[in-house]
Nucleic acid binder design. Structure first.
Length: 587
RNA sequence: CGGGGCGUAGCUCAGCUUGGUAGAGCGCUCGGUUUGGGGCCGAGAGGUCGCAGGUUCGAAUCCUGUCGCCCCGACCA
């Protein structure tokens, strides 16, 4: 039986909802797919549910093809497993926590590593049972500081999360690859362009991690890519360090008075006017070494300073810093932090002074000193001399100062060279729609998931986790497939296969429509039939465009002659066809 | 958490500057008319103007506080 619009649970809105700005959000609400319940929380109406189910079906088929079994866990879980892995606390405000009547702590799961691990621990104890991949499609809860864009970033959202279990690293590589391949097939079937980027793996304790990003201006992630095929999340980008330079014969560093030069720009101006380069070129910000003082708060609560030296034309990227120092949290040092180190002269900080090294664990301050990878041995710098109003020129790395190491903290810019030598990179915005992740043994270790191997020895299992944001993918598809009139679904995920519209008041129109609908349904297609009697054609056309089923059949003024119209939602093209030929024209 | 915008009928909004007791369009109900682009006519139902306090004879309107929502940023395995 067709779904008849005359009594379907659907109401389209004539105007844009006032609380939706992002296209997908606006159209999904207006066309009657979803309704907002609370910020970042949505109810699903019949149309929306059908699209969601189609996406899930594609995912299920590909998961099955990849050998993964479907399970389903509760969203409401006890505290204990998350306490053991530390995530009860580490998740911070992002975790929905609650208590039952007895006062026991519960949470609404943001993701399920712990309980999947425990389930496998419960049931399996031999290497013979591995590898294993299991997955679920289930709602996740994260108390986002700011949900946005309707379904794009919600506090409740549907996710496909899969977990793999192996007892060897090689096995994990295979399981990971199987999921990764499945993701490529899934996103291709969904018609979603994607870029696989290297992602930061640090915070989750894993070894390999890649994100599937859909390139789009509404994306929240910035990534870089080169023409030569390199792609990485900005957080995971590594700087291509230049070769070390032989500094033999370089002139000795010299200190100049540089009054009133607390910023890079004032310093460069002063250097050019008072101390021009011997070779006649202009000094630029890139010739200066900027030393940024950060305060790191470690998980144990201790607060320590670290100083990052980077070329003066670069800014510190706090996201990259976050990754570099995780799990410690980094922020700019405050006055109180600086007050503890009177040797640091604000605005004139540098690794060197007349009295010896100032920065570094072996220096008088003992403050850890890390530099940008571009600061290689033999590079010459203008930097603070640790005296008010004075800078040192020609300070050579490796000769005049030593460092405690390098750090990826500087911002990434277009035209920076890709680390694999594949050329300059460009910056682009993307929306994360999938993430594959080698967790390694972190969770298995914490929760005691071990199996006996071929030699009868207990070995800790190694795991992977693999996520797809189902509702986010739906939103991205909507974001990608629409025009000024409404949605235009790809056939693979459209809520119905065909939308039949009866226009006019003559009985022949409705009789013909019934014939057409029945013929289409006989081919196994799902039909939405607009059989509303007292609704004008304009309203029906408008609704059809808003709802966005790609294939529309209009039964109207030609009905008496056995002629109907095929309307391609995407191209707008309409062609006349005999009733008897409607089905044949679909193939 | 910082910045901006907004809370008036089911929806989209006007009214607020200059205080006088509630409006429009759409939607909904009834009757009629109309049927290839959101048509027309008539009659209706529907709102403690986010909430609380204050000023005033009188507050949607002015003042104070508060709550909520949206956007940008911070944040976000």
């Amino acid at each position: 039986m067709p779904t008849r619009l005359s009594n379907y649970f659907l109401r389209t809105l004539r105007e844009d909802p006032s609380d939706a700005e992002v296209t997908s959000h606006r159209l999904l609400v207006r066309a009657g797919y979803i309704r907002r319940q609370a910020p970042g929380i949505f109810a699903w109406l019949p149309l929306g549910l059908k699209v969601k189910a189609k996406i899930e079906t594609i995912i299920r088929e590909e998961m099955a093809a990849a050998g993964a079994f479907e399970v389903h866990f509760p969203a409401l879980l006890p505290r204990e497993p998350y306490e053991i892995t530390g995530r009860w606390d580490e998740y911070g405000d992002g975790l929905f926590r609650l208590q039952d009547r007895k006062g026991s702590d519960l949470l609404l799961a943001p993701t399920h590593e712990e309980v999947f691990t425990l389930m496998v621990k419960d049931l399996y104890s031999s290497y013979k049972d591995l590898p294993l991949s299991i997955f679920q499609i289930q709602d996740k809860y994260r108390d986002e500081a700011r949900s946005r864009g309707g379904l794009l970033r919600g506090r409740e959202f549907t996710m496909k999360d899969a977990y793999s279990f192996d007892y060897t690293d090689a096995g994990l590589d295979l399981s990971y690859q199987a999921q990764r391949d499945a993701y490529e097939r899934i996103f291709t079937r969904l018609g979603l362009e994607y870029v696989i980027v290297k992602a930061d793996a640090g915070a989750m304790g894993g070894s390999r991690s890649e994100e599937f990003l859909h390139p789009t201006a509404v994306g929240e992630d910035t990534f870089v890519r080169s023409d030569g095929g390199y792609a990485a999340n900005v957080e995971a980008f590594t700087t291509l360090a230049p070769e070390a330079i032989d500094f033999a014969g370089f002139p000795a560093a010299v200190v100049h008075d540089t009054p009133e030069t607390p910023t890079i720009q004032t310093l460069v101006d002063r250097a050019n006017s008072a101390h021009p380069r011997p070779d006649g070129r202009e000094w630029t910000a890139a010739d200066t070494l900027k030393n940024v003082v950060l305060a790191l708060t470690h998980p144990d609560g201790s607060r320590k300073l670290v100083i990052i030296g980077l070329p003066g034309d670069r800014e510190v990227d706090l996201k990259r810093v976050e990754v570099a120092f995780a799990p410690a949290e980094a922020e700019a040092a405050n006055e109180a932090d600086l007050a503890k180190h009177p040797g640091l002269v604000k605005g004139y900080i540098g690794p060197w002074s007349q009295n010896g090294a100032v920065l570094g664990e072996k220096s008088v301050t003992g403050i850890r000193f890390l530099v940008d990878p571009r600061v290689v041995v033999g590079t010459e710098w203008i930097t603070g001399a640790n005296e008010p109003g004075r800078h040192v020129f020609g300070l050579v790395a490796g000769r005049d100062f030593q460092v405690d190491g390098t750090v990826e903290a500087a911002d990434v810019r277009a035209d920076d060279p890709a680390p694999d030598g594949s050329g300059p990179v460009e910056l682009a915005r993307g929306m994360e729609i999938g993430h594959v992740f080698q967790l390694g043994r972190k969770y298995a270790e914490a929760l005691g998931l071990k199996v006996l191997d071929e030699n009868g020895k207990l070995v800790t299992v190694t795991m992977g986790s693999y996520g797809i944001g189902v509702t986010r993918a739906l939103a991205v598809i909507a974001e990608l497939n629409n025009d000024a009139k409404g949605l235009i679904w790809p056939e693979a995920v459209a809520p119905f296969d065909v939308h039949v519209i009866a226009t006019g008041r003559d009985e022949i129109v409705f009789e013909t429509s019934e014939t057409v609908v029945a013929a289409i349904e006989a081919t196994g297609r799902d039909v939405l039939y607009d059989d509303r009697r007292k609704v004008s054609p304009g309203v029906k056309f408008g609704d059809a465009e808003l709802i966005g089923i790609p294939r529309i059949v209009i039964v109207g003024r030609g009905a008496a002659d056995g002629i109907v119209e095929l309307w391609d939602r995407r191209s707008g093209e309409r062609t006349q066809v005999a009733v008897a030929d409607v089905v044949a024209s679909f193939s």
